[in-house]
Simulated scan of single mutants.
Amino acid sequence: MSLTISFIYLSESFNNSDFQVESNLFGFEICRKELWGNQKLKDLGCLIIPKLKEFDLFIIKDELQTIYEDCQIILEHINEISLATNYSDEFIKFRINNLLNFIEIALENKENLGLNIS
């Protein structure tokens, strides 16, 4: 199975299917523990993404900014994370960029949109 990113609609009156994102992939199921739940991410200061180790993520409102900051930390320390997890820089960067595409749209509509990673 694969981990995927999707929108959560917080308002019944808001439903825009015109959002364009190229990929919703966030890795394989094993990435929950080996990559996103790795202690290295916690040590670097990530707050939300490491929780994926234990459960699916439902990110709304102010949490969107926090997960955005997690993504920035990961991109800034991608080489260290790659060494700690044995996942390539390219593998990590591709998935973080997928998430950032979703985050940007959700931040622009944060009263109406959230994110789910499962």
Rank of each mutant, 00 (worst) to 15 (best):
N109D: 05
C31K: 00
I8S: 05
N38A: 07
E54W: 13
C71M: 13
Y9L: 12
N109M: 06
K42E: 13
D89V: 08
I92Y: 01
L107Q: 10
E111H: 04
L10P: 07
I74R: 11
S82R: 06
C46H: 11
F19M: 07
G45D: 06
K61T: 00
Y9M: 11
S88K: 09
M1R: 12
S118M: 07
L41R: 11
N16P: 06
L52V: 11
G114E: 03
I105K: 11
S88T: 13
I96E: 02
K40Q: 05
T4N: 14
F26Q: 07
V21N: 08
L41W: 09
L99R: 10
N112Y: 14
I81W: 02
E29K: 10
L115F: 06
E12W: 04
N116S: 13
L100Q: 15
L99T: 10
I30A: 03
F91S: 06
F19H: 15
N97S: 04
F58D: 01
I96W: 04
F58V: 01
D62P: 01
L47R: 13
I92F: 02
N112G: 07
E80N: 11
L35R: 09
C31L: 00
F26L: 08
F58H: 05
E108A: 14
E104I: 06
A84N: 10
F26N: 05
M1S: 13
S2G: 09
E12S: 12
N112A: 12
E111F: 01
